[in-house]
């Protein structure tokens, strides 16, 4: 069966060891985590963890059931399809020769990115958006040389009813 990318978001108790329980479940059951992102919500007792994984649909069903079974997982939702918004943030440190600077800035500008650090031979670029958009920008920056890269992986929310 074909694997497909699947993003899930969950509210969990904000306690030590909870991320380990979630991540340990993936490794222990042989599921793969592509990215994981977590931080507290507006309720300090609750954190939100968002995980992207590659799996076929029955495996996804099993992963979601197993996660719901964890005592510290309060609520779990799938973050796929048009009913939700998804964003990813990337910071890329790009090698930029002085004569290339204008081109790179144009790319960043086009992608509505930001320069968050600059030096004689580098720029740190911040881009955010749908994962595919971020990937497009990174592809455009790649020929200049990406020295370092940090990506959050997707986070997201379910849309409210209109």
């Amino acid at each position: 069966m074909n694997t497909e990318k699947h993003v899930m978001t969950m509210l969990v108790d904000n306690e030590p060891g909870v991320v380990s329980r979630v991540a340990g479940l993936f490794s222990g059951k042989g599921f793969n985590i592509e990215s994981i992102c977590g931080s507290p919500t507006n309720d300090p007792r609750v954190s939100r963890i968002t995980i992207a994984t590659q799996a076929n649909p029955p495996v996804v069903e099993q992963i979601e059931k197993q996660l719901r079974k964890l005592v510290n997982v309060i609520k779990l939702r799938s973050l796929n399809g048009p009913g939700c918004v998804r964003r990813e943030l990337a910071l890329a440190c790009v090698t930029v020769k002085p004569e290339q600077r204008a081109e790179v800035l144009r790319i960043v500008d086009l992608a509505q990115g930001k320069i968050v650090d600059a030096g004689l031979s580098h720029l740190i670029v911040e881009v955010s958006g749908e994962q595919e958009e971020v990937q497009t920008v990174l592809n455009l920056l790649k020929p200049y040389g990406i020295k370092k890269l940090a990506r959050t992986g997707p986070i997201g929310l379910i849309r409210e009813p209109k």
Partner: peptide
């Protein structure tokens, strides 16, 4: 021991 037994308990506490 909480770390060690995480995958083989229903739940555990420190």
């Amino acid at each position: 021991i909480v770390g060690i037994t995480r995958p083989c308990t229903k739940h555990n506490y420190l």
